[in-house]
Design a protein around this nucleic acid. Structure first.
Length: 664
RNA sequence: GCCCAUGUGGCUCAGGGGUAGAGCACACCCUUGGUAAGGGUGAGGUCGUGAGUUCGAGUCUCACCAUGGGCUCCA
């Protein structure tokens, strides 16, 4: 077969003498480039596409490029130039640095002696609008590199000059210059819009400090965040989502719903109040159920270990600054930051036969990691937490099946939780790594093949793997389209060697197992935070701290309410009676704000008929239900872990979209 | 860890050198009212911690702690 050529965005070409797999491409073209450009799917038939345009056909690689996303990027990048122009027209002394496109918009870093203030944002936006109205042409010129350096230097744009010098050092001889109108220009690779007026919808959002090249030793810069969209409608929708995100902030919901708290005497240490602990424990029970189903065994391992353990595992060398230490009896101990080394000790406790593999051990152990003070954020980043952590020790020939089982289990769990929208990333070998290329080839192929066999699309993060092995990261995309990394599966060639783990094969010889680290929810803490934001606090019944609130119209119904409550209680339902002498409307409002799924209204009518009237948190009211039937229906809803009320028609499931629109 | 901001009753916030305010929540009383806030009374705070300036400090200064937005980090 003819060679296959892959054209890269920087115009270089890589040639393969056979049909390359996507992994080969990723490993060949290098991490940085692949990360920016490769969205890929092994589907065994489709055209090989290159990274610039279309490409050689007959290959088994398909690279998904989303045209819309690309043009949006162009608009945003042009809008970044627009912002720079606006700022310099307002304050000519301000110097420009860089202004890249990011996930939901773009930013530009400025060097300004005077720090920007929030009042400056509307000014900048107004100036941007003025410039847009001029609708100037955007023209590209290619300048000899010396001329470019000289020009920017003369203007005092030392950051730009530095960037161009770097390009010169890489052997570039010309650089792209984009002119907006007659006067203003900037260094850029492009592409850009042809006329400024093509930018239809921009919004300046916020302000932050940053550093030149992200290094705190360098100059402090003023970063202005903004976003741009194809049209006003898209922009408005995005702004609405930002609003919505604020409303859904799990820190706010956690307080309002009485789920968890923080105290300054334990930074990064969440307190789960009774209601929050209920959610925590229900999630654990759910995962335990899945462990039984997927044949994991749960273990319990120590909290504190002699530091020697972490010397042996390598964590001390690589991870020390994130660990807590303590000295007892003149001996150095450490709180475990992860369960794996302990599991290795447990693996060694008994001699393993190949028949015992795969050996899957799960552990809800408490972990402590010292996080730098600036990185903690609600439940998303804490210093003490627990993961739905498990390790699988298996033979190399079992690898693919284990990966496959994990992905199936994850899909199962996410589906039950109403989280069908997720993306899978395969991170491949980094430059600094351990283990032979042969082993890496096998492991990467096992990951890719498992996903392909399950017909799950995935994207390659070339070079993003850990030094000890390749991994899958699962990005859950929530109800307002924000990605969160929750689940992960990591192959590890390091720990089995560090602990000299073996099993006896059918050849009566010792062999080294592969170790897999895996979690589905990630940390329970973080998961609860994410899930609260995904559901805006409207949890499914089985996770609701209070499932049924009993609201009496007058005190005459209190005995009836207590009778009902003990009946529900006996079935294991979580019930609460609002016994306060408030009016019904008042009690309803409170129950509503607490997002309690079922409100039972008890008045004289119900007392006489011995039937109940139910109000859902959606506001829907159903009158005169039979108590026994209601109880059974509610129990069924819980046991089946249903996402919507049995009284509410299930909306059609439109979840699968995400897989087909693997963006980026 | 770095930059900026913030820290006042359980919660949300006002006040800004002369001895602490509101709404909600809470307690009690009146009201027993049918699907998102009935009325009254009351209790509750050494204004994040420590030092300084001042006749006098929630209020000004400094340090520290915590939180928030970013940066960086997340073998």
């Amino acid at each position: 077969m003819a060679s296959v050529r892959i054209f890269l965005p920087d115009n270089s070409v890589k040639t393969f003498d056979h049909q390359p797999t996507v992994l080969e491409v990723a490993n060949r073209i290098g991490p940085r480039l692949a990360k920016d450009t490769l969205g890929a799917q092994l589907n065994g038939e489709s055209d090989v596409v290159d990274l610039r345009t279309l490409l050689p056909d007959g290959s088994k690689i398909k690279i998904i490029t989303i045209k819309d996303a690309e043009s949006l990027q162009v608009i945003r990048h042009s809008a970044a130039h627009l912002m720079a122009q606006a700022v310099q027209e307002l304050w000519p002394e301000v110097k420009v640095t860089i202004g890249p496109v990011i996930d939901a918009g773009f930013y530009y870093d400025f060097d300004s002696a005077r720090p920007f203030t929030p009042d400056d944002l509307p000014k900048i936006e107004k100036k941007m609008q003025e410039i847009l109205a001029r609708n100037e042409d955007v023209v590209r010129e290619d300048w000899p590199i010396d001329k470019a350096i000289e020009t920017f230097e003369k203007m005092g744009e030392r950051f730009k000059a530095e960037l161009i010098r770097d390009l010169a050092a890489k052997g570039e001889t010309t650089v792209g210059i984009y002119k907006q109108g007659l006067v203003w220009f900037d260094l850029c690779r492009g592409p850009h819009v042809q006329r400024m007026g093509q930018i239809k919808a921009v919004k300046v959002l916020s302000l932050a400090g940053s550093y030149w090249r992200g290094d705190e030793k360098n100059a402090q810069l003023q970063r202005v965040y903004a976003t741009a969209f194809n049209d006003k409608k898209e922009l408005d929708e995005h702004l609405k989502n930002l609003e919505e995100a604020k409303k859904r902030d799990h820190r706010k919901l956690g307080k309002e719903l009485g789920l968890f708290y923080f105290h300054q005497l334990s930074p990064g240490g969440p307190f789960f109040a009774p209601k929050g602990a209920l959610i925590y424990n229900e999630l654990q029970s759910f995962i335990r159920e899945k462990y039984r189903e997927y044949q994991y065994q749960e273990v319990i391992t120590p909290q504190i270990f002699d530091v020697d353990l972490f010397h042996q595992s390598g964590h001390y060398d690589n991870y020390r600054e994130n660990m807590y230490f303590t000295k007892v009896d003149d001996r150095d101990f450490s709180f475990k930051p992860m369960n794996c080394p302990g599991h290795c000790l447990l693996y060694q406790a008994e001699r393993k036969s190949y028949r015992e593999l795969p050996w899957r051990v799960a552990d809800f152990g408490r972990l402590h990691r010292y996080e730098r003070s600036g990185v903690m954020h609600g439940l998303n980043r804490v210093r003490t937490f627990c993961q739905d952590d498990a390790h699988i020790f298996c033979r190399m020939d079992q690898l693919q099946a284990e990966i496959s089982q994990f992905v199936t289990m994850l899909n199962d769990v996410y589906h039950t939780l109403g989280m069908d929208n997720y993306l899978i990333y395969l991170s491949t070998r980094p430059e600094k790594r351990m283990g032979s290329d042969e082993v890496w080839d096998q492991a990467e192929a096992a990951l890719a093949d498992a996903l392909t066999a399950l017909n799950l699309p995935f994207k390659i993060n070339a070079g993003d793997g850990a030094f000890y092995g390749p991994k899958l990261d699962i990005m859950f995309v929530d109800a307002i389209k924000r990605p969160w990394q929750l689940g992960t599966l990591q192959c590890d060639f390091n720990l089995p060697r560090a602990f000299d783990l073996n099993y006896v094969g059918d050849d009566n010889k010792e062999h080294r197992p592969v170790m897999l680290h895996r979690a589905i929810l990630g940390s329970l803490e973080r998961f609860i935070g994410v899930y609260l934001e995904h559901t805006a606090g409207h949890l499914p019944l089985w996770l609701s701290p209070v499932q049924i609130e009993l609201l009496t119209v007058t005190d005459r119904q209190l005995d009836f309410a207590r009778e009902l409550a003990s009946k529900f209680n006996a079935h294991g339902l979580r019930v609460h009676i609002d016994e306060r002498g408030e009016k019904l409307g008042y009690k309803i409002r409170e129950a509503q704000l607490q997002k309690i799924p079922y409100m039972l209204i008890l008045g004289d009518k119900e007392l006489e008929s011995k039937r109940i009237s139910v109000r859902l948190s959606s506001g829907k009211v159903i009158e005169s239900l039979d108590i026994e039937t209601f109880t059974q229906d509610v129990l069924r809803e819980i046991n089946e872990r249903r996402l919507t009320s049995f009284l509410q028609p299930t909306p059609t499931n439109t979840n699968q979209e995400a897989h087909n629109s693997s963006t980026i």
